[in-house]
């Protein structure tokens, strides 16, 4: 019996490719798999078989499920080495950002919940007072983490993480690198309007 080598659904694949291309503004069909991106990727050792070129291949083959949730999407450090070295000027890091947004819109569980919690907490804290207060940001992040661990019964993780960050906080305080004052923007109205617009755009799927 012959095994199906490739499961390819033309229409769904086309739609997926178009969505990724238009949202990321990257011409992924130009990729000829030279793998310069893979050679330069600093997290390549940590992402298993998923390298930037293979991520592009996944999209081109219409493997939506894999493309939206894999180690590269969550381990990417946005260093932009792949895109800088690409002979066809494809910024895979922009594609990864798009895939992250899409996976969030589809309510998929992040493969690395801490990474998702980090960036979400950063934006929430930064837009609360207009400037980032590191204590507020890290507090939000740790609450999100603890909540995630709690519902997965990972009590030891909560303890470990809290101790780790408390230790860092203490060391930073000793070196006068911890800032205890609150910094904020005086006129927040512009930012609040922009934030509202961002939410509306996300809800409308723009």
């Amino acid at each position: 019996m012959a095994l199906p080598v490739l499961d390819y659904e033309h229409e769904n694949t086309q739609a997926f490719i178009h969505e990724v291309m238009s949202r990321s503004e990257q011409n992924i069909t130009a990729c000829y798999q030279c793998r310069r991106c893979a050679a330069g990727c600093p997290v390549g050792e940590e992402t298993g078989y998923v390298t930037p070129d293979r991520l592009i291949r996944m999209i081109l083959l219409g493997d939506r499920e894999q493309a939206l949730s894999n180690k590269l999407v969550w381990k990417c450090v946005s260093c932009y080495t792949c895109g800088t070295r690409c002979p066809n000027e494809i910024q895979t890091a922009k594609i990864i950002e798009t895939l992250k947004h899409m996976s969030k819109e589809e309510h998929l569980d992040p493969l690395l919940p801490k990474v998702a919690a980090f960036h979400k907490s950063f934006c929430t804290a930064a837009n609360h007072l207009g400037r980032l207060n590191e204590i507020e940001f890290m507090g939000l992040y740790e609450i999100k983490n603890a909540f995630h661990d709690l519902i997965h019964f990972k009590f030891r993780e909560i303890f470990k993480e809290t101790m780790l960050q408390a230790k860092l906080g203490l060391r930073m305080t000793k070196k006068k690198r911890m800032h205890f004052g609150i910094q904020k923007v005086k006129h927040l109205s512009d930012l609040k309007r922009l934030l509202k617009k961002a939410k509306k755009r996300a809800a409308d799927g723009v």
């Binding site: 949202r23 946005s78 950002e97 798009t98 992250k100 947004h101 980090f118 960036h119 979400k120 950063f122 934006c123 930064a126 837009n127 207009g130 400037r131 980032l132 923007v185 005086k186 006129h187 512009d190 930012l191 922009l194 934030l195 617009k197 961002a198 755009r201 996300a202 723009v206």
Partner: peptide, 25 residues
């Protein structure tokens, strides 16, 4: 005067519009 957070890498990983809107102010 009265500058705000640029959004850093987190904004671009969370919301593309915000990643331009925050520095735009």
């Amino acid at each position: 005067e009265d500058w705000n957070c640029c959004g850093a890498t987190s904004a671009s990983k969370t919301d593309d519009f915000l990643s331009v809107a925050m520095p735009a102010r």
